[in-house]
């Protein structure tokens, strides 16, 4: 299993947000500012790599019937560790992300990867898969949060981009904006994928 393939699978082909369509709650909630989106992305990537590695390590020892609760315990442990370290070393980000840090436990992406990949593959591949999915997730968060912050407060990473005469559209910082923007982004991604797929079909036809 080529590691680079595993990595890019997580970023593009099976991007958790744009393709697999899981892990949505956090995406909508924390993307009001680019730095929050980035922080959340990094936190989730950390938990993903950690839990994928541990699940891969114990995959031969854990009986099938209790694998889901066992995975949940592993994930919850990593989330709590991330929580503690954020609270100790990055309190402002901890306060900004609020309840969505402990909610990383129920972020479907992590359990899904543990169940469908890490429990069936070796250590290195699982770690890279965790990294790839995490990067894909973070990219999606960054795109959405940069858009929302720019349209909603005129800034990116707290740097004011437009002059004071720009009236930001606050709706983008509020729930409706999040839903609508994400819907449009997925729609754009879908349309790119559809064009790609029909191009591939045409190429196969011509090759015959």
């Amino acid at each position: 299993m080529k590691l680079s393939k595993v990595f890019f699978n997580g970023v593009v082909k099976e991007n958790p947000i744009f393709v697999q369509l899981i892990g949505m709650c956090s995406v909508l909630a924390v993307t009001t500012a680019a730095k929050n989106g980035l922080a959340m992305g990094l936190a989730v990537t950390g938990v993903l790599i950690g839990s994928n590695v541990v699940v891969s390590l114990i995959r031969k020892v854990v009986p099938n019937k209790i694998r889901i609760p066992a995975f949940i315990v592993v994930i919850a442990t990593f989330v709590t560790i991330v929580e503690m370290f954020m609270k100790a070393y990055a309190q402002d980000l901890y306060n900004a992300l609020g309840i969505f840090i402990p909610l990383i436990v129920v972020n479907c992406i992590i359990l899904a990867r543990a169940e469908s990949f890490a429990s069936k593959h070796g250590l290195l591949a699982s770690a890279v898969d965790g990294l790839g999915m995490g990067v894909g997730y973070t990219l999606a968060l960054l795109i959405l949060s940069i858009l929302r912050e720019f349209l909603g407060s005129g800034s990116i990473f707290d740097i004011q981009m437009l002059g004071p005469s720009f009236e930001p559209a606050i709706i983008f910082l509020m729930p409706p904006g999040a839903f609508i923007l994400l819907g449009i982004l997925i729609g754009i991604f879908n349309s790119i994928r559809n064009k790609q797929a029909s191009k591939e079909v045409l190429q196969k036809e011509e090759a015959r």
Partner: peptide
């Protein structure tokens, strides 16, 4: 519905409109 919007995208946009209503 436009093919690219089928499924989740249109559901999300609908949710956005519902969210505005609930505001």
């Amino acid at each position: 519905i436009p093919k690219a919007l089928e499924g989740f995208p249109i559901a999300l946009i609908t949710a956005g409109l519902m969210s505005i209503a609930f505001l």
